[in-house]
Design a protein around this nucleic acid. Structure first.
Lengths: 201, 201
DNA sequence: GTCTATAACCTGATAGAC
DNA sequence: GTCTATCAGGTTATAGAC
């Protein structure tokens, strides 16, 4: 879908688009509804007219973000027609492609969940689903000697951590924007290779 | 050093101890000075008497936390008397031992730095120091074909990410507290082994 | 639907008594 | 050093005119 110009968006869309940006940048507690209204170029009262409260608006944004973050892995987990190697390649590529466009997403979602973990508790029982997935079964078959959680945490760590650490790497001058993105492109090939090495070790 | 009972701590120590706990749990923006005062069991006015402002108190806590997080790796980086394998073993063990005691530390520090990266800019030029360290030199010698940043991000990802993802893993019911800590103990042996496999791949 | 004005509340910080 | 009381400013949310 082509990206609309700001002036083409409806007021409601302008608000939620601004909310996505400001909430992700500053976190729930640090953003003021005035920031969102200003970013959207609308009157503060309209925010409450359309979304009733800061919290309701945040929930909408958060719901999207959580699904974007887990959506990059979910469809692969239970695919019966791919082996372990193919799944890992797919997960790594999906994730890095998405994260290059949304580098702040993981740190935002993970830290907001931490500060408000009650809400995400038993809404879905995704933990069990993950550990009973085809993916987890294939890991167990390959390496019955270690917990599949170890492998899952490792794949996610290799893929997500660079984006989580990016603000620090930039602040200390270890990378600039362009070279970071170049490294992430390289990682699409490197990480599946490394995970294979881990599984063989 | 033995842990003092709360009643043995000076007022100043009670406040900063409470500040460590509350800031780390909720982040700067979401904590109120009243939360800290209550947690410390002291009057709100005393917080300003001892630390002048919320921000000054936070800076003290943040300074400690940053040094704790980077202190686990810093002494190893320029050790001339250990090879690459020994350095990785040391970094992994130091980090996991420290993180088991401070599981919320990485997510707290990384997200606060992201929301306030200006302050951490050129205070030190640590990026250059890191990339010119003995550790980085040893990585380059071993794998001249890939950026040492790839290896550093991977080691940190394998070690830190489980702690960063822990709130989510707990929220979705993928692990309980005890089994998580058990996995981290296992990781002290697994991760160095895996990094060796990565370096050989 | 959109605006201005304002209510109702919360938060950091301080004045001043003890 | 420690407390109570309170101020000044900021924040979310709404009432009511247009």
């Amino acid at each position: 879908m082509a990206k609309k110009r700001e002036t083409d968006l409806s007021t409601e869309e302008k608000i939620i688009e601004a909310a996505r940006k400001v909430f992700t940048q500053k976190g729930y507690a640090a953003t003021r509804t005035r920031d969102i209204a200003e970013e959207a170029g609308i009157n503060l009262a309209l925010l409450n007219y359309y979304f009733r409260s800061k919290e309701k608006l945040f929930e909408k944004v958060m719901f999207e973000k959580v699904h974007k973050l887990f959506g990059a892995i979910a469809p692969v987990l239970n695919d019966e027609n791919s082996d372990l190697t193919e799944k890992i390649e797919k997960i790594v590529e999906n994730y890095i492609n998405m994260l290059v466009m949304n580098p702040d997403l993981p740190l935002f979602v993970l830290s907001e969940i931490k500060n408000n973990s009650e809400q995400f508790g038993d809404k879905f029982n995704m933990g069990k689903l993950m550990l009973e997935s085809v993916f987890a079964r294939q890991i167990r078959k390959r390496r019955p000697d270690i917990s599949p959680l170890h492998i899952i945490m490792s794949v996610l760590g290799l893929v997500l951590f660079p984006f989580i650490g990016r603000p620090v790497l930039r602040a200390i001058g270890a990378v600039d924007e362009a070279s970071f993105m170049g490294l992430m492109e390289e990682r699409k090939k490197l990480v599946p290779h490394w995970v294979a090495a881990i599984l063989n070790s």
